[in-house]
Amino acid sequence: MKALEIKDLSYHKNLKTILERVNLTLEAGKIVALVGANGAGKTSLMRVIAGLAKQYKGGVEVCGEADEDRRKQYIAMTDSLSAFRDSRKIKDVADFYRLVYPDFDDKQFADILEFMNLNEDERLGSLSKGMKEKLIIALVFSRKAKLYLLDEPFSGVDAMSRKKIIKSMLLWKPEEATLVISDHVLDEIAPVIDEVVLIKKHSVLEQRSAEEIRAEHESIEEWYEGFYEGEE
């Protein structure tokens, strides 16, 4: 069963090439790291998959569904929460989610908040970067999706919070759902991923099984850095 199938995807914005001839297939149930330098196109790729960026060419199917509006029901993507004012409480954000997403599960949200040591009465403005990221993860996993897209969930997050976020992924990802995590470093997520997809030069340069890389006695980080040697 395929969670995602992208065929010959190209995406241009203001005459600039963002993505070029991307082909990518992800199986259901996998945890996948989407890596690449800043500006390589990771976020754009996620936005195209999620149906947020529309002016693209090529095919994108999520769980066999190509129609943008209909494939949205299968996808939960992290939201930076930048549309919410600092004075808003966590529970206000949850109210919004409940309204917009019919698959939002209150019980699950309460459970994840508790796991993350967050209180629904806290205001967004009082949250540290790590706490805010935990909230974003709690919101995304409170939805019952087939494909979860986490856009750089670890940037600016301290080590303890990163561990907590990784554990929450293992706890709350539905078994048959696919999880895509974008990042430009791979340190802590390496042991939890099935596959790594490398974006370079506006396209998918490599897609490898994590265990396969390690079987060649190479760490995933070494493998990844190998693609950027001599470019510093």
Binding site: I31, L171, E175
Partner: peptide, 17 residues
């Protein structure tokens, strides 16, 4: 499998294997 995956902080598919 899930408990082992959590205890070791690894992918459940890897524990399965």
């Amino acid at each position: 499998v899930r408990a082992l995956a959590l205890e070791l902080t690894v992918n459940a598919n890897t524990v399965q294997r």
